[in-house]
Design a protein around this nucleic acid. Structure first.
Lengths: 194, 194, 194, 194
DNA sequence: AATGAATGAGGATTCATTCAT
DNA sequence: GATGAATGAATCCTCATTCAT
């Protein structure tokens, strides 16, 4: 039997290794060689599969985003209708999001998005999905769901940033803060948002 | 006696050049040589005055933070007491903050803070000042000024991040969104924040 | 499958080139680039195989020491028992030892041994072997072979130093001087050495 | 009063600082700036007085040699005639010779002498003086004073080298070994040296 | 006399990437 | 599919040295 279907396995190993190495290094200052070695292959093969370092990192980021999306969907699946927005917030500040490698990846991602169109596109997709999820969740409960979703999404990002730079413990505080604002939005009668 | 007092002039030129080059490159992927050349001197002199690339960037970031602090103070000076929080928000989303070089610098700064203690310290100082300013402004108006300040500060960062990655035009929207949340905080009667 | 087994070939070429370049320059003030170029490869490859300049030099010194050891063994193999010490002396002042590159390498080696633990270890190994060889050779002939070996070893180093700084011609004189002291040691009846 | 006669003072300070820095660094890898700073002046002034780094080091070496010469003369002055050679040996292994900065300076000196004519000349002067002193001391006591002086001088250098690379404690052993060889030379009846 | 200012030149090292096998 | 081999290009940093004042 020839080695069939090695490609997906290799790509997978590379993505995992990338995330792990970013975590270990605290930034994208990781050599392709290290990543490849951790993934158990030569750096040449890594290039063969991905074409270049940026593509490897992008694939890793795609995975992080996908995983996060799955977590959100899982939370959403079990949430009662009027707790759906809260569920999204909880997922956003879950421990898994504050793993050092995730934090470093996110920061790197933001920098990259300044220059790399693919990274920017990826970020926009994440944004849209986030807003869409929140919008859906808020639709039955508030007057202008889209506007409130935008605010909450931004707040989540901002709180994440802070929690990431302080110690991860503060993620619980961040959760409470975001939930409080959510609560406020839900009970505000008339708001001049946007 | 030799030529005297060049140091502050050179440091200044270097800081300016650094910010400009970061803007042009979109990241910290700028050589010390380029920065020095733009500042009209040799890279050796740049090293002489700052000791290394990171120190140069840190000095640039310090300048950005200082300038921002001055803008905030200026806005604060002319604001009527119960508009002080709004003034801070407006300063945060002023056009000057969305200059491409500022955005790139901020993103780089966040990445750097993951690993560089000096950068982290600098960021914490910025944070504290921001929160302190907001807290002062809110003290007479709300029950728990510290908590609301934390939320607003995070929201500002989050909105900035988004605006930065969308086109800067959205800064106006960001301003309105932040002001709306501020308004809400001011009129909320009882909130379970924190 | 890739080209294989280049490593030993490259390392070898690099070691040869290092010795040659040191000879040409008269000291270790040789760039890795020059060495690599002489060895027919890029400096990057040199670093790849050795890790750094010091390691390259250490490898070169190891080779010099190994070659010298081989010469000593060869002389020893053909010497009649009571001429073994003389054989070692002759090997020590052989023309091959006074090649300019060898001399420069030795001098550099001594300096390096002041600071570099690996170099110091290497030197100690050389020392021990030298003394051990002399000791063995003298054992049947003198009362305190170890002491006399130490004296002879030091004398050899000292005479080498001088010959190296005068012109290499003096190596013959050095040989005679060392043999004379050897002779004296062999005929001394009672000595208060050590 | 203008600053009169600063030159000798400055030169002196520089020479002291050079020796001290070499000791601290373990080699000649010392910047002129550091030396100058330790001597309490600018590096520009150091260049002004000496012309360049090599000259500074040469001056330092000259001082080391001069000091050593003085020590030898002092020992010689108090020694009874037939102990003069022993006195020279003792001076050569005095503690002052094994100060780390002296050792490092000597090693560096040997390397330098490979390429630098001035250094070589200086070394030759040291050699000649050493041999001359020993020769004088041995003249009344042995048949071929010049030959024995050469052997002793070489032995001293060789033993110094070893002691320097082992710990300085061994200087006492070195002294005894050299004295033993001296003793042997003094009592040997017929020797075929040279 | 003395120095801050300034630099040219260089040098070790790193790494993404390519290629022959 | 897979990799050891190989490198070009870049970058930070260092330092002896010069010069205007």
């Amino acid at each position: 039997m020839p080695k069939l279907g090695m490609e997906p396995i290799r790509r997978d190993a590379l993505v995992n290794a990338t995330i792990a190495e970013i975590g270990a290094a605290g930034s994208l200052d990781v050599t392709v060689s290290r990543i490849a070695k951790r993934a158990g292959m030569s750096s040449a093969l890594a290039h063969h599969y991905f074409g270049g370092k940026e593509q490897i990192f992008l694939a890793a980021m795609r995975r992080i985003l996908t995983d996060f999306g799955a977590e959100v969907r899982a939370e959403l699946a079990t949430a009662v209708p009027d707790q759906r927005a809260a569920a999204i917030i909880r997922a956003s500040f879950a421990q898994s999001c504050f793993a050092p490698e995730k934090i470093s990846a996110w920061m790197t991602f933001y920098v990259m998005a300044q220059n790399n169109p693919q990274a920017l596109r990826l970020w926009r997709i994440y944004q849209r999905r986030m807003r869409s999820n929140l919008s859906h969740a808020l639709r039955p409960l508030v007057a202008d769901a889209a506007a409130d979703a935008a605010v909450l999404a931004a707040l989540i990002d901002g709180l994440y940033l802070r929690s990431a730079l302080h110690d991860p413990e503060t993620s619980q505080i961040a959760t409470r803060q975001a939930l409080a604002v959510l609560d406020m939005l839900l009970h505000a009668k008339a708001r001049p948002v946007q």
